[in-house]
Simulated scan of single mutants.
Amino acid sequence: MDVRSEEAGPGAVTVLQVGPLGAGLSSTLASKYGAVKMAQPAPSGAERDAVLAVTGGHSGLTAELLDALPSLRAIVTFGVGVDRTDLDAVRRRGILLSNTPDVLTDDTADTAVALLVDVMRGFGAVARWTRAGHWAAGGSYPLTRRVSGSKVGILGLGRIGSAVASRLTAFGCSIAYTNRRERPEAPYRYVASLEDLASWADALVVTAAGGPASAGLVSEAVLAALGPGGYLVNVARGSVVDEDALVSALVGGRLAGAGLDVVRNEPHVPPALLGLDNVVVLPHVGSATVETRQAMADLVLANVAQFFRDGTLVTPYDVSG
Protein backbone atom coordinates (compact mmCIF):
# COMPACT_ATOMS: atom_id res chain seq x y z
CA MET A 1 0.00 0.00 0.00
CA ASP A 2 1.35 3.41 -0.95
CA VAL A 3 1.36 5.72 2.07
CA ARG A 4 3.23 8.89 2.76
CA SER A 5 6.30 8.76 4.94
CA GLU A 6 6.37 10.02 8.49
CA GLU A 7 8.28 13.05 7.33
CA ALA A 8 5.74 15.49 5.91
CA GLY A 9 6.96 17.96 3.33
CA PRO A 10 6.94 21.73 3.88
CA GLY A 11 3.40 22.98 4.37
CA ALA A 12 1.90 19.51 3.94
CA VAL A 13 -0.52 17.99 6.42
CA THR A 14 -0.24 14.23 6.67
CA VAL A 15 -1.88 13.74 10.08
CA LEU A 16 -4.92 15.70 11.16
CA GLN A 17 -6.12 15.84 14.76
CA VAL A 18 -9.91 16.01 14.93
CA GLY A 19 -11.19 17.13 18.31
CA PRO A 20 -9.39 17.30 21.65
CA LEU A 21 -6.87 14.69 22.78
CA GLY A 22 -4.62 14.49 25.83
CA ALA A 23 -1.85 17.07 25.87
CA GLY A 24 0.90 14.46 25.75
CA LEU A 25 -0.61 12.60 22.82
CA SER A 26 -1.25 15.82 20.88
CA SER A 27 2.32 16.94 21.48
CA THR A 28 3.78 13.65 20.28
CA LEU A 29 1.61 13.59 17.17
CA ALA A 30 2.69 17.14 16.36
CA SER A 31 6.40 16.60 16.96
CA LYS A 32 6.71 13.20 15.29
CA TYR A 33 4.20 13.46 12.46
CA GLY A 34 3.64 17.17 12.00
CA ALA A 35 0.01 16.70 13.02
CA VAL A 36 -2.17 19.80 13.05
CA LYS A 37 -5.42 20.39 14.89
CA MET A 38 -8.27 20.78 12.47
CA ALA A 39 -9.56 24.29 11.97
CA GLN A 40 -13.17 24.63 13.02
CA PRO A 41 -15.72 23.89 11.83
CA ALA A 42 -14.15 22.14 8.82
CA PRO A 43 -10.71 21.47 7.33
CA SER A 44 -9.29 24.01 4.94
CA GLY A 45 -6.25 24.43 2.75
CA ALA A 46 -3.51 21.88 3.36
CA GLU A 47 -5.63 20.15 6.01
CA ARG A 48 -7.77 18.70 3.24
CA ASP A 49 -4.78 16.66 2.06
CA ALA A 50 -4.48 14.71 5.32
CA VAL A 51 -3.92 11.00 4.84
CA LEU A 52 -4.63 9.97 8.44
CA ALA A 53 -6.87 11.46 11.12
CA VAL A 54 -6.61 10.91 14.86
CA THR A 55 -9.78 11.58 16.80
CA GLY A 56 -11.31 10.94 20.21
CA GLY A 57 -14.28 8.74 20.99
CA HIS A 58 -16.30 11.86 21.80
CA SER A 59 -15.49 13.57 18.48
CA GLY A 60 -15.37 11.27 15.48
CA LEU A 61 -15.77 12.17 11.82
CA THR A 62 -19.14 12.84 10.22
CA ALA A 63 -19.96 12.04 6.59
CA GLU A 64 -19.67 15.74 5.77
CA LEU A 65 -16.23 15.95 7.34
CA LEU A 66 -15.10 12.85 5.50
CA ASP A 67 -16.27 14.39 2.22
CA ALA A 68 -14.02 17.36 2.99
CA LEU A 69 -11.01 15.05 3.39
CA PRO A 70 -10.66 13.40 -0.04
CA SER A 71 -7.14 12.02 0.62
CA LEU A 72 -8.00 10.39 3.96
CA ARG A 73 -7.06 6.72 4.14
CA ALA A 74 -7.09 5.91 7.85
CA ILE A 75 -8.77 7.03 11.08
CA VAL A 76 -7.22 6.21 14.45
CA THR A 77 -9.59 6.59 17.41
CA PHE A 78 -8.49 7.36 20.97
CA GLY A 79 -11.19 5.31 22.70
CA VAL A 80 -13.11 2.10 22.22
CA GLY A 81 -16.32 3.70 20.90
CA VAL A 82 -16.45 4.63 17.22
CA ASP A 83 -20.14 5.58 17.08
CA ARG A 84 -19.33 9.27 16.51
CA THR A 85 -17.74 8.37 13.16
CA ASP A 86 -19.98 7.71 10.15
CA LEU A 87 -19.24 4.04 9.55
CA ASP A 88 -21.26 3.90 6.33
CA ALA A 89 -19.10 6.64 4.82
CA VAL A 90 -15.94 4.93 6.08
CA ARG A 91 -17.06 1.67 4.49
CA ARG A 92 -17.91 3.30 1.14
CA ARG A 93 -14.56 5.04 0.97
CA GLY A 94 -12.57 1.99 2.05
CA ILE A 95 -10.97 3.98 4.86
CA LEU A 96 -9.18 2.00 7.56
CA LEU A 97 -10.43 2.53 11.11
CA SER A 98 -8.98 1.61 14.49
CA ASN A 99 -9.87 2.07 18.13
CA THR A 100 -8.21 1.19 21.45
CA PRO A 101 -9.87 -2.01 22.70
CA ASP A 102 -8.81 -4.11 25.69
CA VAL A 103 -6.66 -1.49 27.40
CA LEU A 104 -9.67 0.28 28.97
CA THR A 105 -11.70 -2.83 29.79
CA ASP A 106 -10.66 -3.18 33.43
CA ASP A 107 -11.17 0.45 34.43
CA THR A 108 -14.58 0.63 32.74
CA ALA A 109 -15.68 -2.62 34.37
CA ASP A 110 -14.47 -1.33 37.75
CA THR A 111 -16.55 1.81 37.19
CA ALA A 112 -19.66 -0.22 36.40
CA VAL A 113 -19.32 -2.24 39.59
CA ALA A 114 -18.59 0.89 41.64
CA LEU A 115 -21.71 2.58 40.26
CA LEU A 116 -23.80 -0.49 41.03
CA VAL A 117 -22.54 -0.65 44.62
CA ASP A 118 -22.95 3.09 45.08
CA VAL A 119 -26.50 3.32 43.78
CA MET A 120 -27.77 0.17 45.50
CA ARG A 121 -26.14 0.96 48.85
CA GLY A 122 -26.69 4.72 48.50
CA PHE A 123 -23.18 5.56 49.67
CA GLY A 124 -23.02 8.89 47.86
CA ALA A 125 -26.31 10.01 49.35
CA VAL A 126 -25.33 8.69 52.79
CA ALA A 127 -22.06 10.64 52.64
CA ARG A 128 -23.95 13.85 51.80
CA TRP A 129 -26.42 13.15 54.62
CA THR A 130 -23.53 12.65 57.05
CA ARG A 131 -21.74 15.83 55.98
CA ALA A 132 -24.97 17.74 56.49
CA GLY A 133 -24.79 16.83 60.19
CA HIS A 134 -27.75 14.45 60.35
CA TRP A 135 -25.79 11.59 61.93
CA ALA A 136 -24.37 13.88 64.61
CA ALA A 137 -27.88 15.14 65.24
CA GLY A 138 -29.03 11.61 66.06
CA GLY A 139 -30.48 10.70 62.70
CA SER A 140 -30.66 7.22 61.22
CA TYR A 141 -30.34 6.74 57.47
CA PRO A 142 -32.89 4.41 55.84
CA LEU A 143 -31.82 0.86 55.00
CA THR A 144 -30.52 0.21 51.48
CA ARG A 145 -30.25 -2.79 49.12
CA ARG A 146 -27.65 -5.58 49.29
CA VAL A 147 -25.46 -6.03 46.20
CA SER A 148 -24.07 -9.49 47.01
CA GLY A 149 -26.36 -12.25 45.82
CA SER A 150 -28.44 -9.97 43.61
CA LYS A 151 -29.54 -10.82 40.06
CA VAL A 152 -27.71 -8.76 37.47
CA GLY A 153 -28.54 -8.61 33.78
CA ILE A 154 -25.89 -7.44 31.34
CA LEU A 155 -26.74 -5.82 28.03
CA GLY A 156 -23.78 -6.54 25.75
CA LEU A 157 -21.44 -9.37 26.73
CA GLY A 158 -18.33 -8.09 24.97
CA ARG A 159 -14.98 -7.40 26.59
CA ILE A 160 -16.34 -4.93 29.14
CA GLY A 161 -19.57 -6.81 29.80
CA SER A 162 -17.63 -10.01 30.43
CA ALA A 163 -15.28 -8.21 32.81
CA VAL A 164 -18.27 -6.80 34.72
CA ALA A 165 -19.82 -10.27 34.94
CA SER A 166 -16.57 -11.75 36.25
CA ARG A 167 -16.32 -9.12 38.97
CA LEU A 168 -19.93 -9.52 40.04
CA THR A 169 -19.61 -13.31 40.13
CA ALA A 170 -17.14 -12.72 42.98
CA PHE A 171 -19.98 -10.87 44.74
CA GLY A 172 -22.09 -14.02 44.51
CA CYS A 173 -24.42 -12.39 42.00
CA SER A 174 -26.50 -14.40 39.55
CA ILE A 175 -25.61 -13.26 36.03
CA ALA A 176 -27.62 -13.40 32.83
CA TYR A 177 -27.10 -11.49 29.62
CA THR A 178 -28.49 -10.52 26.27
CA ASN A 179 -26.39 -9.87 23.22
CA ARG A 180 -26.63 -9.55 19.44
CA ARG A 181 -25.95 -13.27 19.43
CA GLU A 182 -25.57 -15.94 22.08
CA ARG A 183 -22.06 -16.70 23.29
CA PRO A 184 -22.08 -20.47 24.03
CA GLU A 185 -18.63 -20.26 25.64
CA ALA A 186 -19.87 -17.82 28.30
CA PRO A 187 -20.74 -19.38 31.68
CA TYR A 188 -23.84 -17.20 32.04
CA ARG A 189 -27.48 -17.65 31.08
CA TYR A 190 -28.46 -16.13 27.75
CA VAL A 191 -31.82 -14.35 27.52
CA ALA A 192 -32.85 -13.39 24.00
CA SER A 193 -35.33 -10.70 25.02
CA LEU A 194 -34.05 -7.57 26.75
CA GLU A 195 -37.46 -7.06 28.38
CA ASP A 196 -37.36 -10.59 29.77
CA LEU A 197 -33.84 -10.00 31.09
CA ALA A 198 -34.92 -6.75 32.76
CA SER A 199 -37.97 -8.44 34.28
CA TRP A 200 -35.72 -11.10 35.87
CA ALA A 201 -32.96 -8.77 37.05
CA ASP A 202 -32.54 -6.68 40.18
CA ALA A 203 -30.13 -4.52 38.19
CA LEU A 204 -29.38 -4.05 34.51
CA VAL A 205 -25.83 -3.07 33.48
CA VAL A 206 -25.47 -1.54 30.01
CA THR A 207 -22.18 -2.23 28.23
CA ALA A 208 -23.45 -2.44 24.63
CA ALA A 209 -21.72 -0.52 21.85
CA GLY A 210 -23.23 2.81 20.86
CA GLY A 211 -24.45 3.79 17.40
CA PRO A 212 -27.72 3.68 15.44
CA ALA A 213 -28.22 -0.06 15.92
CA SER A 214 -28.38 0.25 19.72
CA ALA A 215 -30.10 3.64 20.02
CA GLY A 216 -32.91 3.52 22.57
CA LEU A 217 -32.50 -0.22 23.24
CA VAL A 218 -33.25 0.40 26.92
CA SER A 219 -36.74 1.62 26.17
CA GLU A 220 -39.69 2.65 28.32
CA ALA A 221 -40.91 -0.96 28.14
CA VAL A 222 -37.53 -2.30 29.32
CA LEU A 223 -37.46 0.17 32.22
CA ALA A 224 -41.02 -0.85 33.13
CA ALA A 225 -39.91 -4.48 33.15
CA LEU A 226 -36.99 -3.60 35.44
CA GLY A 227 -39.60 -2.03 37.69
CA PRO A 228 -39.72 0.08 40.85
CA GLY A 229 -37.29 -2.25 42.64
CA GLY A 230 -34.76 -2.30 39.81
CA TYR A 231 -31.54 -0.40 39.16
CA LEU A 232 -29.91 0.70 35.91
CA VAL A 233 -26.17 1.19 35.39
CA ASN A 234 -24.87 2.59 32.10
CA VAL A 235 -21.15 2.72 31.22
CA ALA A 236 -21.71 2.43 27.45
CA ARG A 237 -23.24 5.38 25.60
CA GLY A 238 -26.09 7.64 26.64
CA SER A 239 -27.81 6.92 23.33
CA VAL A 240 -28.42 3.28 24.27
CA VAL A 241 -30.99 4.40 26.86
CA ASP A 242 -34.22 6.27 26.16
CA GLU A 243 -33.23 9.15 28.41
CA ASP A 244 -36.67 10.77 28.54
CA ALA A 245 -38.17 7.47 29.67
CA LEU A 246 -35.38 7.03 32.23
CA VAL A 247 -35.90 10.48 33.73
CA SER A 248 -39.66 9.92 33.88
CA ALA A 249 -39.22 6.53 35.58
CA LEU A 250 -36.80 7.89 38.18
CA VAL A 251 -38.80 11.01 38.96
CA GLY A 252 -42.00 9.00 39.09
CA GLY A 253 -40.60 6.33 41.42
CA ARG A 254 -40.95 3.59 38.81
CA LEU A 255 -37.23 2.74 39.05
CA ALA A 256 -35.22 2.30 42.26
CA GLY A 257 -32.12 4.13 41.02
CA ALA A 258 -29.53 4.64 38.32
CA GLY A 259 -25.74 4.86 38.10
CA LEU A 260 -24.67 6.69 34.95
CA ASP A 261 -21.20 7.34 33.57
CA VAL A 262 -22.75 8.58 30.33
CA VAL A 263 -25.72 10.69 29.27
CA ARG A 264 -27.30 11.40 25.90
CA ASN A 265 -26.21 15.00 25.38
CA GLU A 266 -22.85 15.14 27.11
CA PRO A 267 -21.81 17.12 29.08
CA HIS A 268 -25.39 18.22 29.76
CA VAL A 269 -27.07 16.12 32.44
CA PRO A 270 -30.89 16.30 32.60
CA PRO A 271 -31.53 18.77 35.46
CA ALA A 272 -34.19 16.52 36.96
CA LEU A 273 -31.56 13.90 37.75
CA LEU A 274 -29.21 16.21 39.61
CA GLY A 275 -31.46 16.52 42.64
CA LEU A 276 -32.19 12.81 43.07
CA ASP A 277 -30.36 10.93 45.82
CA ASN A 278 -30.99 7.61 44.08
CA VAL A 279 -29.04 8.68 40.98
CA VAL A 280 -25.24 8.75 40.66
CA VAL A 281 -23.93 10.64 37.62
CA LEU A 282 -20.26 10.67 36.62
CA PRO A 283 -18.73 12.84 33.85
CA HIS A 284 -17.84 9.91 31.53
CA VAL A 285 -14.75 8.90 33.47
CA GLY A 286 -14.99 5.12 33.13
CA SER A 287 -11.49 4.79 31.71
CA ALA A 288 -10.02 7.93 33.26
CA THR A 289 -6.98 6.61 35.09
CA VAL A 290 -3.38 7.59 34.47
CA GLU A 291 -2.46 4.04 33.54
CA THR A 292 -5.27 3.45 31.07
CA ARG A 293 -5.05 6.81 29.33
CA GLN A 294 -1.31 6.23 28.81
CA ALA A 295 -2.00 2.76 27.41
CA MET A 296 -4.62 4.23 25.08
CA ALA A 297 -2.19 6.91 23.87
CA ASP A 298 0.52 4.29 23.31
CA LEU A 299 -1.90 2.20 21.24
CA VAL A 300 -2.92 5.22 19.15
CA LEU A 301 0.74 5.94 18.40
CA ALA A 302 1.37 2.28 17.57
CA ASN A 303 -1.51 2.38 15.07
CA VAL A 304 -0.21 5.55 13.45
CA ALA A 305 3.34 4.17 13.23
CA GLN A 306 2.20 0.89 11.68
CA PHE A 307 0.03 2.66 9.13
CA PHE A 308 2.98 4.70 7.89
CA ARG A 309 5.20 1.63 7.99
CA ASP A 310 3.08 -0.82 5.98
CA GLY A 311 -0.40 0.60 5.48
CA THR A 312 -2.10 -1.55 8.14
CA LEU A 313 -3.33 -0.91 11.69
CA VAL A 314 -2.53 -2.68 14.96
CA THR A 315 -6.13 -2.76 16.13
CA PRO A 316 -8.34 -2.51 13.04
CA TYR A 317 -12.06 -2.03 13.62
CA ASP A 318 -14.35 -4.12 11.42
CA VAL A 319 -16.75 -1.75 9.63
CA SER A 320 -18.31 -4.47 7.46
CA GLY A 321 -21.38 -4.46 9.72
Rank of each mutant, 00 (worst) to 15 (best):
L25E: 10
L116G: 02
D202M: 12
G153K: 01
L282Q: 10
S248Q: 13
I160Q: 04
S239M: 12
S150R: 13
G227H: 12
S162G: 15
L155G: 09
A42E: 14
V240Y: 05
E47K: 08
R183K: 15
G153L: 05
D67G: 13
S320R: 14
R128P: 03
S174H: 10
Y231A: 11
L226K: 12
L157S: 05
W200R: 13
I160G: 02
S239G: 12
A170Q: 11
H58I: 14
T144P: 00
P316K: 06
C173Y: 01
T77E: 03
E195R: 15
V80P: 01
G230N: 12
G124D: 08
L217D: 04
T178I: 10
G252Q: 08
F78P: 03
P283D: 04
P271C: 08
P184T: 10
G34C: 03
G149F: 09
E291H: 11
G311Q: 04
V18A: 14
T315G: 02
V290S: 09
F308W: 03
D261T: 07
V206G: 04
D277S: 15
S174F: 05
P10Y: 02
A245L: 03
A288F: 12
P316D: 05
G253D: 07
C173M: 09
R84K: 14
G79V: 10
G24Q: 08
A137W: 06
A215R: 15
E64C: 00
H284N: 13
H268S: 15
A198E: 07
D202P: 10
A132R: 13
K32M: 06
